[in-house]
Design a protein around this nucleic acid. Sequence first.
DNA 1: TGATATCGTCACCATATCGTCACACAAAGC
DNA 2: GCTTTGTGTGACGATATGGTGACGATATCA
Lengths: 230, 230
Amino acid sequence: MSRTDTPLVLVVDDEPAQRALLSYNLEASGFRVALAEDGEEALLKIAEDAPDVILLDWMLPHVSGIEVCRRIKTQKGGSDAAIIMVSARSDESDRVRGLETGADDYITKPYSVTELLARVRANLRRVRPVQAGQVLEVGDLRLDPETHRVSRAGQAIHLGPTEFRLLSALMERQGKVWTREALLDRVWGRDIYVDTRTVDVHIGRLRKAIGVAGAPDPIRTVRGAGYALG
Amino acid sequence: MSRTDTPLVLVVDDEPAQRALLSYNLEASGFRVALAEDGEEALLKIAEDAPDVILLDWMLPHVSGIEVCRRIKTQKGGSDAAIIMVSARSDESDRVRGLETGADDYITKPYSVTELLARVRANLRRVRPVQAGQVLEVGDLRLDPETHRVSRAGQAIHLGPTEFRLLSALMERQGKVWTREALLDRVWGRDIYVDTRTVDVHIGRLRKAIGVAGAPDPIRTVRGAGYALG
DNA sequence: TGATATCGTCACCATATCGTCACACAAAGC
DNA sequence: GCTTTGTGTGACGATATGGTGACGATATCA
């Protein structure tokens, strides 16, 4: 399992277009992405990068996806990663075979990107349960996920649910520049449609809420990119 | 046995997914959770954290569950914890063997989460008899689980059974924000079909019961999340 | 049995919070 | 300088959320 906070997703597919598509969408949703185009490279990257989730194409040159899956799962001291098999065939028998081989989930082409992302997230939650109760601190900002209490320099701050989740996201990855899309995804949820400008407004509200006269604004606007904290 | 009021459950399982699932459900029911993925780590955590209940997978790498069980029970000055063996096999012989080794209870996969939680609670009651007179105090609120007496600033307060359990939950984890679902689970019990709004109503009744003119309301409403005490 | 306490649900209200827009302002490009 | 593009923000209507009194159904107890 990867050591940094950002989950790593390994995409194993021999189709460059598929890799690009998935890579783009996963990164847009805030994941780190590693790529492999065949089974051997996949096994190598798994050993090297310790991904959290593996998107594994069923049909691969040289070593088949199902074989890769077996090897990962039977490997001693092997990967803890969740494996999601991606297949063109929707045969029930294939599905069963995939899951029997040790895959954690199974998705058939054609799939919606939304659905795929949802599956990735769901599996990620299983593999890497969020360690609750971890109090977040950035500068003089404090946020306690368990009690939902927020303070700046000891001063209690009231936030609405959305601003609270927004600040949580920003604080969980201090310094990371979030795109508006990634924030929408993380704070609002995947299938909700809202304008990206909504993020601006909530950032504004958050700024006002945590603002202290004289103190510098801890939220950084990165023109053309998004926002970051600290 | 752990020192704080909230019971600690140690989950020993090499399957990350299992650990995550149990961890999630146990925490949702108000328990604290410790995790171990093999026997050695389990023994370590038992010595360190003194859990009240141990959920022990039968099949473990390195040191088997049954061996862990034996070691815990034969250890001098060892843990008082209740051990619940979790096994894939439903063999009667295994059951007997498990119990002979010193396990307090035995449950076979697949199990319903409800059943498991019930077993945990049942064993907890044996290990930790009704929290033996542990009087809960938050601010000027007092609640005695043994005598079922509640008072505020010395003034006796009468509560119905539901309000009593509700206040108990809130007081056991001062500051923690309980979702309505978690409260339903904890106070009403699983599988009871009750609208989440019912929680609101009972919170209202509880507020009225423990309210004192002039004093601030000790129950905090966290919009979009739930309720917390203090 | 009747009296009482407690419960769960609903309807209605107040308002906290939300998403969008419009316009002002700032930064980057030329 | 001017233009273009991106961001800040006050206002506003729509909506979601929570508080609460009323009411009928049950459970409890003498």
